[in-house]
Structures are given as C-alpha cells and as structure tokens.
Amino acid sequence: MELIHYCLIALVTLANAQFEEPTAAPVLANITLSKGDIQVFSGEDLMTTCSVPEDRSSSWRYKWFRDGAEIGLDGFREIRIELSGEYSCQAEKDTEKRPFVLRTLPSLPLNLRVDRGWVLLQTPATPAIIDDTVILMCRIRNNPVAREVCFYKDASEIQCHKSKLLILTNVMLEDGGIYWCRASWMQGNELHSAQSVPTPVTVLDKLNTPQLAIVSGQIVLGQEVHLRCNTQLNVKGEGLHIEYYYMKNNSWLAPSSSSNTYTIRNVQHQDAGTYTCKAKVRILDVERWSNSLELKVH
C-alpha cells in the first residue's frame, strides 16, 4: 500500500507539471520602430519591429500590446489619432524541454503619439542625460519648405530661424521643461502658420540624488534596523557601479560598500542620531549626498 501511495503522488505531480504555466526567459523583448517615429502625423505609415537581442533565431513568435491589451498588428498604414498609446511586445517559442514554451519578458513600453494638427515637435524617445546633445525637430505636415520656425520653452522664445531643428548641446537639468514650436510656410500664394502641441523634454542627472529611508517599522531597543540609500544610475556602461558610504553625526560608519542598505543588528540608545549616505561612481567622478535622517530609539 505504501508503494502504491508513493506511485499515486508521483503520477499526480507529473500530471500537474504537464499544465504548469511556461516560465519567462530572463531576457527582455525589444520593440523598435523600423519606419516612422513615435511622434507622427495622422495619415502617415509606421512599422514596428520586435526582437530578442540575445537570440536572433527565426523560431520566435511575437505578440503585440497597446495599453496592456493584445493587438494583432505590427505595422500601420495611414495611422489614426485613436491609435496613440503605449505599445509593447513579447516573444515566445517552442522548446523540446519543459516548460515546452519559452516566453521572454515584455519589452519596455514605446509611447506613440499621433498628431492631427499641421505642426508637431519631435522630441527624443528617451530622457536625456546631463551633457547629452538633444535635437528637437519642428515638423510641418507634408514637409513644405519652412519660411520661419520659432522654438519656445515654457513661455519663453528660444530662437527663430528657417531651420526646423533646435540643437541643445551639453544639456543641464534646467534644460528640461515643456517645449513647443511655431512654423510658417507658403502654400500656393497663401502664407500659413501653426504651432505644435506642448511636449515635455526630460533631462536626468547621471546619478539621482539619494534618499535615505528607514526600512524597518518602529525603532525599538534591541531590534534590527535597516537604513536604505535609494538612488539610480542613469548612465549605462561597462564597469559602472555605485559605491555607498554611511555617516552618523558627521562621522563615517564603515568603509565603502556595494550595498545600498546599512544594517544595525541590535539597535541601542547610542545608535540614535542623524544619518546620511553618499552614493559615488568613480569612473564618472560623480557623487551625490542624501537627505539627513533622524533615528530615534524607543
């Protein structure tokens, strides 16, 4: 009977395993535009491409999503205003081993904006980083020759000329904001003028200012306390990593660490005080200090 019992357990386990949900491959699908731009006029054509960077094989199948709902298209002819939204894709393929179907993680979103007007401002698809060069283009529907193009940031005029491009070099955080443009052009014997919809331009620091926070709840004598130094490195590159330093009452607590968490194992009254942390990236020669955090022990 005991042998039969173990056999039944094995059969049930095997049967359940047959219906296990396929697990995700540890890679991200990548969605790109092979034709068009993320900011387009209604009536223009677009073509999206989904790929798996770590595996270029042709056995992948692709799914497409808009605002989280699955759709069946990877391209658009004469795109309409209502097709604006957040697009992503996911890849899957059959395998000979369990779980028999391998799925990637969904791609990062691609935000598509369809403009029904006569003038639109094309901005970078991703946030700029300090010291980057940012190129803004003031497009006119059907691409006539511009007579004059003026660029604005918030409520201030930046420049007016005949070029449809505004090039911002070595951008700083203060270069972020709301941009728009106004263009004029001749059509037949008539002068036309229109302005774009205001569009945000984001500039990020290379390393975000850290925020020091207490992970634990109420700080009670003898409890383990975790202080977390939350930041983000916005620059990608080989060998880049963040070093963390912690201070209490302006005195260093420990050598640099690769961990963003400082732990007090058995908190005592003498651990009360003002804490700060510093995040540093040596290769970039960048460091940022956090806020001050008051730790009280009850």
Rank of each mutant, 00 (worst) to 15 (best):
L227Q: 05
P210T: 04
L221R: 07
V220K: 01
K206G: 09
N234V: 14
N208G: 05
P200E: 13
R228T: 00
K206I: 14
Q232C: 06
S216M: 10
L233F: 06
C229T: 07
T231E: 13
I214S: 08
P200C: 04
N208D: 14
L204C: 07
A213S: 07
L221I: 11
K206R: 15
V203H: 07
V203W: 01
I219W: 14
C229Y: 02
T231L: 14
Q223S: 15
H226F: 11
I219A: 15
N234I: 12
V235A: 02
I219C: 13
L227P: 03
V203Y: 02
V215W: 01
Q218F: 09
L221Y: 07
A213I: 03
S216W: 05
V225F: 11
V220W: 00
D205W: 06
C229I: 02
N208K: 08
L212H: 04
V235M: 12
Q211F: 07
N234L: 11
D205V: 04
G217T: 11
I214L: 14
C229R: 02
Q232P: 02
H226N: 07
P200R: 15
H226G: 00
L227G: 13
L233K: 00
V235Q: 10
A213W: 00
V201Q: 09
N234P: 00
N230H: 15
K206M: 15
V220D: 04
G217R: 13
T209F: 04
N208Q: 08
V225G: 09
L233Y: 02
T209M: 13
G217Y: 10
D205T: 06
K206N: 11
V201G: 05
T202F: 13
L212R: 03
L221Q: 07
I214W: 06
V201Y: 13
L212D: 01
E224P: 12
Q211Y: 08
P200S: 10
L233T: 04
L207R: 07
N234C: 14
V225R: 12
N230T: 03
T231V: 11
T209C: 06
N230M: 15
T202G: 06
L207I: 03
Q211V: 14
S216K: 12
K206Q: 15
Q218C: 03
N208E: 09
L212M: 02
T202P: 03
V203L: 04
V215E: 06
I219H: 14
L204W: 09
E224F: 01
E224S: 15
K206W: 12
N208V: 00
S216D: 14
S216L: 08
L204K: 15
V201P: 05
N208I: 01
T202R: 14
L207S: 00
N230V: 11
H226Y: 08
P200D: 06
D205I: 04
T209S: 13
L212V: 02
T231A: 14
T202W: 10
I219Y: 15
P200L: 10
V220G: 00
